[in-house]
């Protein structure tokens, strides 16, 4: 009994849900950022799983591009977090509720 596609999908759904819960529950900007990364990764997992099970390359190529986007997001996101911290002396996103920096 080898791992089935449905296993991967279920696992990825669970991880995605964990990420969503984290985004909603966490107040720390960095934690939220990490939860978003987790969500991206769980989607990546489905991509790769589909790619592998359907013997199709596109999923993996997509994952590659998602990773590039995630890297870009990390660069900008962390820059924003640092700027936020400089201004607010706090990483609590609820303190940054004025819709401006």
């Amino acid at each position: 009994m080898t791992p089935q596609l449905s296993w991967y999908l279920a696992l990825s759904a669970v991880m995605f849900t964990i990420g969503v819960a984290g985004v909603i529950l966490k107040r720390n900007a960095i934690s939220m950022f990490m939860c978003i990364e987790l969500m991206l990764n769980s989607v990546n997992l489905t991509f790769v799983a589909f790619s592998s099970f359907f013997n199709n390359l596109n999923g993996q190529l997509f994952v590659f591009i998602v990773m590039a986007v995630a890297a870009a997001e990390a660069a900008v996101g962390l820059g924003i977090i640092i700027a936020l911290f400089r201004n607010r002396e706090s990483l609590d996103v609820d303190d940054a509720n004025l819709l401006k920096l």
Binding site: V23, I24, V93, D94
Partner: peptide
């Protein structure tokens, strides 16, 4: 639109 990011996330969800 309270300015709280997490509520936006909840609405998106």
């Amino acid at each position: 639109q309270p300015g709280f990011v997490r509520s936006y996330a909840a609405i998106i969800l």
